[in-house]
Amino acid sequence: MEIRASTVLPAKREDIELDTGDGLTLVGELALPENDPVATLICLHPLPTHGGMMDSHVLRKASYRLPALADLAVLRFNTRGTTSERGTSQGAFDHGNGERLDIAAALEYAEFHDLPHPWLLGWSFGTELALKWGRDPLVEGAILLSPPLKRATDEDLDAWATFGRPLTALVPEFDDYLRPAEAAERFARVPQAEVIGVDGAKHLWVGEPYVRIVLTEIVRRVNPMALPLPAEV
């Protein structure tokens, strides 16, 4: 069977709730491989005021495919005030400030449930959250899709440099906010950062070829032994 945009591969999936330090309940889903996971992706979605949510397509496809193809656990959730088919998380959008408690709740859940080697997978607004609030000792590294570097400042990049964990930015050639050449300049202040420009891609990564590139680069950092990812199962 060819893996297509709508393909859902086998995994152990369960609805979860995250409890934040300020008393909110966030809704989410955990997708686990049939075997013990090798590592964990904690997904941070795009801007909820522009339609971003845990079901934003790249994150959803990661949860549909990577447990089966790469033995990864994939944890997705709606940040405060965000709605998806799973439901609505309590609270209200806080422009990336109160959301630091949402990331902390996801990491606490991962630690309590013995989810191994957590990596942050941020997309657009989610990259800002990762850079600003993801510098937790539990975090193994971060993968950034279409980072705008608007809310996240040079001071946040300097802090990540000191944090020392791996950082990979996948930057579309035709991104609306930050393109590869400028991204390389901005991320140069993080010695361990790798910037990968993706020819032909746009901010929303529309198109199955670009989704495959993204998922491959994620697995290359988190579980390279699973490469190459098959196109058929």
Rank of each mutant, 00 (worst) to 15 (best):
Y177F: 15
W133P: 01
P180W: 13
D136S: 07
I143R: 05
P180G: 10
P148D: 09
K150T: 06
S146H: 12
G141A: 04
L157T: 09
W160V: 02
W133M: 00
P137N: 03
P137H: 06
P166H: 08
P137K: 05
L157E: 09
F163Q: 00
V171H: 13
D176P: 02
W160N: 04
A152M: 04
G141M: 11
L170E: 04
E128Y: 13
I143W: 08
T127D: 02
V139F: 10
L157K: 12
E128D: 14
A130M: 11
A142D: 05
I143Y: 08
E128I: 06
E140Q: 15
L178Q: 07
R179V: 11
A169R: 07
D176T: 14
E173F: 09
L129E: 01
L138Y: 04
A161V: 06
G134P: 10
L149S: 01
P148M: 09
D175G: 13
L178H: 08
T168R: 15
A181R: 15
F163N: 02
K132L: 09
L144Y: 05
A161I: 01
A130V: 12
D176V: 13
L157I: 10
L178R: 07
F174D: 12
L145W: 11
R151N: 06
V171W: 12
L170V: 03
K132D: 04
L149D: 07
E173I: 04
L149R: 11
K150G: 01
E155G: 00
P147M: 01
T153C: 11
L178S: 03
E173Q: 15
A152F: 10
L144P: 01
G164I: 10
G134A: 09
T153H: 08
L131Y: 14
L145E: 02
R179H: 08
A169E: 06
G141V: 08
G164S: 07
V171N: 08
T162W: 11
E140R: 13
A181V: 12
R151Y: 14
W133F: 13
D158G: 02
L131H: 09
T153D: 14
E128V: 05
R165Q: 11
T162V: 15
T162Y: 05
F163Y: 14
A142F: 10
D158W: 00
K150L: 07
I143N: 03
L131K: 08
K132G: 02
A159L: 11
D175E: 08
A161D: 12
I143M: 12
D176F: 15
L138D: 07
K150H: 13
A169L: 12
D156C: 03
K132P: 06
